[in-house]
C-alpha cells in the first residue's frame, strides 16, 4: 500500500532479476579513523539462511545497516532485490523484515497501536497471522511498549517484522540477553520463515549454537573483513582439531601454516587447523611427531579459535614491538 497522493517520483525501475537477494560488492566504510568495513563482498542467494558471526565491533551491524540503507556505502555497491537501498528505500524496505538487538519501538505506543501503525506500511500485512503471533507471544494489545519486558519487546518487534511475510528477514543479534523461551520464539520464527518458499534470512548472532542450528551458510566477519562465507558443512570440513605427539618434549608449538591456535605442553600439542587436510603431510613430515587424533569442530569452537588467533597474533606483535 503506497500513498496515493505523494510528491514523490514513483516511476522506479523494476528490480534486476537474479538469484541473489543481497549482493554486497567491495564495500568500505570508515567512521573517523576506524575502518568498520574493509572491502566487504557478500552474496545471499534467495531461499537461504545466512548466519553472520563475529566479535563485538567486528562490523556485523554496520554491514546490516548498509543492507537496510541506513548507512551509505562510501566505496562499493549494495543491492537488495537488485535495487540500491539508498536510492530506492521504499521498494527495498517493503520486502525486508528487520529486528535489532535493542528494538527501538516507540515506548508510548500500545501494542495494538504499534501493529496498526506498522500494518499501514505493508500491503501484504496478514492480520490473521499477526493476531495468531500476538496470541502465541502472549502480548496484551492494551499494554504500552515501554511497560513490556525485554523479552516481550523482542517478541513485539518480531511480530512487527514477520506479519507481512517479508521476502528477506534481517535479524541483528535478536536473542542477545534474552531468556531461552524468547530465543526459542525467535528461532521458531526463522524456521517458519524458511518454511515459506523463497524467503531469505540474514541472521547475526553471538549464540553460535543457534546459528549452527538454522543456518545454511555462515559468514564470519572480523575487523571489518569477511574471513569466510560458505556453506556450514564446508566451513566445518575445512576446520579440524589435530593432536600431535612429539618424540621429545617441546616448550613451544611448532610452526604450522593454517594453525589458528595451539594448546598443549611437553609431548602432546593440539592445533585448531584451518585449511585443506591434504597439505598436512608436506608440512609435518620433518617433525619428529605423529598425528594421534583428528576431530571436527563446532561453530563455537571455530569462532573461538578464529578470535583467539587474532588475540594471539596481537599479543605476539606487542611482544615483538617490546
Amino acid at each position: 500500500m503506497v500513498a496515493p497522493n505523494t510528491l514523490l517520483e514513483r516511476a522506479e525501475p523494476e528490480p534486476i532479476a537474479g538469484d541473489s537477494v543481497v549482493e554486497v560488492r567491495n564495500v568500505c566504510r570508515r567512521f573517523g579513523a576506524k575502518l568498520a568495513l574493509d572491502d566487504v563482498s557478500l552474496s545471499l542467494p534467495a531461499g537461504t539462511v545466512l548466519g553472520l558471526v563475529g566479535e563485538n565491533g567486528a562490523g556485523k551491524t554496520t554491514l546490516i545497516k548498509h543492507i537496510l540503507g541506513l548507512l551509505k556505502a562510501q566505496v562499493g555497491t549494495v543491492r537488495v532485490f537488485g535495487l540500491d537501498p539508498v536510492a530506492q528505500p521504499v521498494r527495498v524496505l517493503s520486502g525486508i523484515g528487520y529486528l535489532s538487538e535493542e528494538p527501538d519501538l516507540p515506548g508510548w505506543m500500545r501494542v495494538r497501536d504499534l501493529l496498526r501503525y506498522v500494518a499501514a506500511f505493508y500491503p501484504s500485512w496478514d492480520h490473521a497471522y499477526a493476531e495468531q503471533l500476538r496470541q502465541e507471544f502472549a502480548l496484551d494489545p492494551m499494554a504500552k511498549v515501554k511497560h513490556l519486558s525485554k523479552g516481550q519487546k523482542a517478541r513485539a518487534g518480531l511480530l512487527a517484522a514477520l506479519a507481512y511475510r517479508p521476502q528477506l528477514l534481517v535479524l541483528d543479534e535478536p536473542s542477545s540477553g534474552l531468556d531461552p523461551i524468547v530465543r526459542r520464539d525467535i528461532l521458531g520464527a526463522i524456521i517458519r520463515t524458511i518454511a515459506d518458499e523463497g524467503r531469505t534470512v540474514l541472521f547475526s548472532s553471538h549464540l553460535l549454537a543457534e546459528v549452527e542450528r538454522v543456518s545454511d551458510r555462515v559468514a564470519m566477519i572480523r575487523a571489518g573483513r569477511i574471513l569466510f562465507c560458505d556453506s556450514l558443512d564446508k566451513v566445518k570440513q575445512t576446520h579440524a582439531r589435530l593432536t600431535f605427539r612429539f618424540d621429545s618434549p617441546r616448550e613451544s608449538p611448532p610452526v604450522l601454516a593454517g594453525a589458528l591456535t595451539w594448546d598443549g605442553a611437553g609431548h602432546d600439542w593440539t592445533a585448531v587447523y584451518a585449511g585443506s587436510p591434504g597439505d598436512l603431510p608436506t608440512q609435518t613430515q620433518q617433525w619428529d611427531a605423529r598425528l594421534v587424533e583428528q576431530s571436527g569442530l563446532s561453530l563455537d569452537e571455530i569462532f573461538l579459535a578464529r578470535t583467539s588467533s587474532k588475540t594471539a597474533t596481537a599479543n605476539a606483535s606487542e611482544e615483538d614491538e617490546a
Binding site: A3, L8, P89, V90, Y98, S100, D104, L105, F121
Partner: peptide, 17 residues
Amino acid sequence: WPAFLTTRPLPTADFVL
C-alpha cells in the same frame, strides 16, 4: 532517527510532509 522509523517503507519526503 530510530531504525524503527527509518526502516519503514515510506518516502523520505512523506515523512517531512
